[in-house]
Amino acid sequence: MTGFRRLSAIVLFAAVLASCASEPGGTNNPIMRPFQWFSYANGDDIRNVCVPGRNSRYRLIYNALYDEQVRTYDIVQLLTSKEATQVTRVFSGGINADWNLASSGFDPHATQQSREIISISDLVAIEQALIKSGFEQPAIKGQILHSDSFYWIAMVCRDGIFKYYAWTDRNADIKKLPFREVLAKGDETGVALVDPYAPTFPGRGSRYYNGRGGKTYFTMQVGDNGLIQ
């Protein structure tokens, strides 16, 4: 059972109460934020509009020790031109302080954010870098993503087909993944990407999610083509 599933069993009653008392602008409830993040990391919003004829959508997430830095890259191809928009967000200290899900859709408030127009050649370069990194392979079912580690997630919707993949230090050299460089071209946040290193911390069993800052630990598990809920 993943950390999210264990957490859901503990806070089920609180979640019901929160849903009944939710505000139009989203939630500041620290208990509910992990579930919002899970939905975002699973690409639920992309899946919901992934039908033939729609513009291609890309989302990449870099977890550089959850409590230190999380980076997200949302890229949408513009149907009426040979361009795409790349929105890059950098969250410092995890989603406890910076994340919000509005009722109208995902509305993350990042520590730093940039929105840039990238060319079709840049988008092709991202595609090629993903393929070179092994993205076209089937997702690794059962893969565990630890919040206190370094990993990448990528999801793409093209021509109505949704594809999901994740990289950890067990199946890749995180520091040398080819798409890091091409994503940097559309990243104007001004915040340096945290390179992987070996952190020192107590055993995972001694840590817990408290929703009030400090050390946060949870896991997510990859299934056939996304996260296991």
Rank of each mutant, 00 (worst) to 15 (best):
R57Y: 03
T88Y: 02
A9F: 15
Y209H: 01
R54T: 11
V90E: 02
I61R: 00
R204A: 01
Y208S: 15
Y217N: 09
A64M: 10
S19P: 03
R5G: 05
A9D: 15
K141S: 14
F201R: 15
G190F: 02
T72E: 00
I31M: 10
A129D: 04
A102V: 08
C50L: 06
A110K: 02
G105E: 05
N55E: 15
R71P: 05
T85H: 08
W37G: 03
M32W: 08
A166N: 06
P202I: 10
N210A: 09
A154P: 04
T189S: 01
I140Y: 03
D122W: 01
I75P: 00
N63M: 11
F162Y: 10
L177F: 02
R207K: 12
K141A: 14
D224I: 06
Q113E: 13
K185T: 09
P24K: 02
D122A: 08
G205E: 14
V11D: 03
P196S: 01
M155A: 05
A18S: 10
P196T: 00
A18E: 14
T168E: 05
S133C: 05
R71V: 13
L145W: 10
P34S: 04
E23S: 10
S114T: 10
V11H: 03
Y62I: 02
Y58R: 00
N48M: 12
R212K: 14
V76H: 08
G94I: 08
W37K: 09
G26L: 00
F38R: 15
R57C: 06
S147V: 15
